[in-house]
């Protein structure tokens, strides 16, 4: 049951990315180009997604536990620290360069554009590196 419903949730997410235009890097880059070819569509994606999630979470949390796993696993309210802000800054630069964030990159995979086939392995390598960096003892990246 878990894999079937997991697949279904991924499919709905992916269709949302496609319908919204978020899966097209050209649309993302134009959204980010406020002083140029600005296309504000993605503000509507964000608005629709956040409001739906805000309302739906409150319904989901009425149950004592999720349907298919024993407990809710929700991030604790931590501090706004250096890894958070440095990571977000690096991500923003990469997003502005390629127009891909992680979800749209996965949905782009079957279209097999050369840029996508280069982006995804690089992203996976980056995730591995980022995890190591986050758990490293480097004082500059510890909160």
């Amino acid at each position: 049951m878990r894999p079937i419903l997991g697949f279904l949730a991924g499919l709905v997410f992916g269709l949302g990315l496609i319908l919204s235009g978020m899966s097209n890097p050209a649309k993302v880059l134009n959204f980010l180009d406020i002083f140029g070819a600005w296309d504000p569509s993605l503000a509507f994606v964000m608005g629709g997604a956040v409001v739906t999630t805000f309302l739906g979470y409150r319904l989901a949390w009425r149950r004592p536990a999720p349907v298919l796993l024993p407990d809710f696993d929700i991030p604790r309210r931590g501090a706004i620290d250096t890894p958070l802000l440095a990571g977000a800054a690096l991500f923003g630069i990469g997003w502005g360069l390629g127009g891909f964030c992680p979800g749209p990159a996965w949905t782009a995979l079957p279209l097999a554009a050369p840029g996508t086939l280069v982006f995804i392995p690089a992203m996976l390598a980056g995730i591995w590196a980022g995890r190591r960096l986050k758990s490293s003892p480097a004082p500059a990246l510890r909160s």
Binding site: G94, C101, G126, I127, W128, G130, L141
Partner: peptide
């Protein structure tokens, strides 16, 4: 871009 997106989102 992929490297920055992966590293940044994991960090």
């Amino acid at each position: 871009a992929g490297l920055l997106v992966g590293t940044g989102t994991a960090l």
